[in-house]
């Protein structure tokens, strides 16, 4: 589980571009492509500057109709997922 000491920020080497309300990304070293849906794209936007889990969840709760528990669980999963794929960097 991700604790709030960890801050996340975009991997600056990634190429990313908004396509309507989604984002397409490419990892220049691996050559892999990724797509973010509208909610994920919003999180990506926030991660231009370092954010921890709680900060992201708080922002999303004001914008999307979702319960705090669901939101936290899903954002947490998402962060782990894209962190594994090296789309974001972590710092303590």
């Amino acid at each position: 589980m991700i604790n709030d000491k960890i801050k996340f920020v975009r991997n600056k080497r990634l190429l990313a571009s908004r396509m309507d309300d989604e984002i397409v990304m490419m990892h220049p070293e691996s050559g892999k492509y990724f797509a973010l849906n509208p909610v994920a794209a919003r999180i990506w936007e926030l991660l231009e500057t370092p954010h921890n889990l709680q900060e992201i969840v708080s922002k999303l709760l004001t914008e999307f109709d979702v319960t705090p528990e669901t939101c936290k669980a899903q954002v947490s999963d998402f962060l782990e997922n894209i962190s594994e794929k090296k789309l974001i960097d972590k710092s303590e």
Binding site: S17, M19, D20, E22, M26, P28, A35
Partner: peptide, 27 residues
């Protein structure tokens, strides 16, 4: 959305020959 990118990427000329050599420029 991202579909747009995925569809058009299929139409890069000789994409099969060059594979992903120029992927960054193309992106």
């Amino acid at each position: 959305g991202v579909d747009k990118f995925n569809v058009l990427r299929q139409h890069i000329f000789r994409a099969k020959m060059i594979n992903e050599i120029y992927a960054v420029e193309h992106f």
